[in-house]
């Protein structure tokens, strides 16, 4: 039985809801009041994750934390197709590289959002500039990907957990005052992610129009 310790407005928690929706997994949610209650720093939560960070996922007796690590766990354990976190060593490295970039997006784009929307004391211009730097590189990577026949962040011809990990805080960037107008290829990639069968939304992340093959 899977239980997600979840905050509805958290992009990191949404990553897990998104992959579990795509994999059609059933799970329970225990809401954690991250804001304004700061329950992720409460005694009971720190026993689950001493780092005091959301999300935490329990699978029977196993307690896991860190969204990227949990994405890898869920894919390896429950994805029968093996596409979301392939075993190939080179692809594994590629995915982990993007999981690290996803954390950089969290520390920039998400930080700006926390500062503007959740009263956090972060350096907003610095966080915004950091996010723009990453988005520029992602846009270039994805733009050349489109020309080379690669629709996703990693080499395989299908999405992986790398796409899931990077997606939420790209989509929520405007809540941190970071526009995506200068990143057309990043915007097109976000359409593709939103067209993955089983895609689910969260507050601030809307559905896209239908894809070519469905129209």
């Amino acid at each position: 039985m899977i239980t997600l310790y979840d905050f509805e407005l958290s992009g990191n928690c949404y990553k897990l809801r998104l992959l579990m929706s795509i994999l059609r997994l059933r799970y329970d949610i225990i809401p954690v009041d991250f804001f304004p209650g700061r329950q992720h720093k409460s005694d009971w939560f720190l026993k689950l994750n001493p780092f005091g960070q959301l999300p935490v996922l329990k699978d029977d007796d196993l307690v896991l934390s860190d969204s990227g690590a949990i994405l890898a766990y869920l894919a390896k354990k429950y994805d029968e197709t093996g596409q979301w976190f392939p075993n190939d060593p080179a692809i594994t490295a590629e995915i982990l590289r993007w999981h690290a970039i996803a954390d950089d997006i969290t520390s920039t784009a998400s930080a700006a959002r926390l500062a503007l929307g959740f009263d956090y004391d972060f350096d907003v211009p610095k966080a915004q500039a950091g996010a723009h730097r990453i988005f520029r590189l992602m846009d270039e990577h994805l733009w050349f990907g489109e020309r080379e026949g690669r629709d996703w962040l990693c080499t395989p011809p299908h999405p992986t957990t790398a796409d899931i990990a990077c997606f939420p805080y790209v989509m929520l960037s405007e809540e941190g005052g970071i526009g995506r107008q200068d990143y057309p290829a990043l915007r097109r990639w976000s359409d593709r992610v939103r067209r993955i069968p089983g895609f689910t939304i969260m507050s601030g992340i809307f559905p896209a129009g239908r894809a070519l093959e469905q129209a």
Partner: peptide
């Protein structure tokens, strides 16, 4: 204001010209 390739099937592109989005 865009490349033709920027407008694939069923996409909405965000642009700006002279201050107008």
């Amino acid at each position: 204001i865009a490349s033709s390739d920027d407008l694939p099937f069923r996409h909405v592109y965000q642009g700006q010209l002279l201050g107008r989005e």
